[in-house]
Design a protein around this nucleic acid. Structure first.
Lengths: 144, 144
DNA sequence: GGTTATAATGATAACAATTATCAATATCAA
DNA sequence: TTGATATTGATAATTGTTATCATTATAACC
């Protein structure tokens, strides 16, 4: 079984919080991990149902909250519509370039921007924990 | 009457789109302009009702969409909860440092970050139109 | 000014995403 | 094995927002 590290992260989170394990949570976690996409709850729900048809959507909501809590996932909000969940554990931090025409996005990363943010935060005496940078524009394809 | 410039911006938007003027829109626009806060629809609705008690909340939703369309306002989404609307016209572009404990935020600006974003976008052949940068952390007060 | 086409309004139904509730079940420490 | 309690799935409730629609207001034209 793959994803031992991620499972360990989840395990210690569960232990630390006095929660319990369950087959549903394991199914959801593994399905999430092997799908390298920015999934919505509904999309993940559909995928997990193939493995475990009796699962309820509320459990998917609940489990994704836990995955965010232990650093395995992170919420992403592009404008309106449902929240998307991206992989977070051992993924280089990246930002998103979103096309306003076709809705597609590109992940980009830039160490300098990260540094500048730290500087800004320090100036205001903030202890930075994370950030979300969304850049909107028109992608190459849509510029035609 | 103040805010002549902003009213002119709105006027030409209305003309250009073949829309019409209305007292409600004027009340909403002026109340929005004189309240230098990141208002939710509901907050603005409450304020406008003091001037015009018969106004409906749907009109506030609709008018804020228009204000965003003509560049007088801009949507802001801090995590969940309702969208907030900030002033946009002739306001230097700024980003937000949001405290994860108390929910307060500070506006910050940094010309260099803007430049770096342009660079990133160019690399991907994106025509950048705007961006939203939210930085999360703990503010001075909450670090106590 | 009066007419007329059409945009705007307010009330509220509908909708989408999410959270809360709750009875039944599963987990796990002792 | 047992008992305390966390989890589950179904679904009701909630929240924020948009759509609908009959009525009213606006503004271009005469």
């Amino acid at each position: 079984m793959a994803f031992e590290e991620e499972q360990k992260v989840f395990d210690s989170f569960v232990r630390e919080k006095g929660l319990k394990h369950s087959g549903q949570r394991k199914d959801i976690l593994l399905t999430f991990l092997k799908t390298e996409k920015h999934l919505t709850v509904d999309e993940l729900y559909t995928l997990v149902k193939k493995k475990n048809p009796s699962i309820g959507i509320a459990t998917v909501y609940r489990t994704l909250k836990l995955l965010c809590g232990c650093g395995l996932s992170s919420e992403l909000r592009f404008g309106d519509g449902p929240v998307r969940y991206e992989h977070f554990y051992r993924h280089e931090h990246h930002d998103h370039l979103v096309c306003v025409k076709c809705g597609n996005f590109i992940e980009v990363m830039d160490a300098e921007i990260e540094k500048l943010q730290e500087r800004l935060a320090k100036k205001e005496d903030f202890t930075l924990q994370g950030h979300k940078l969304l850049m909107y524009g028109v992608c190459r394809k849509c510029k035609g």
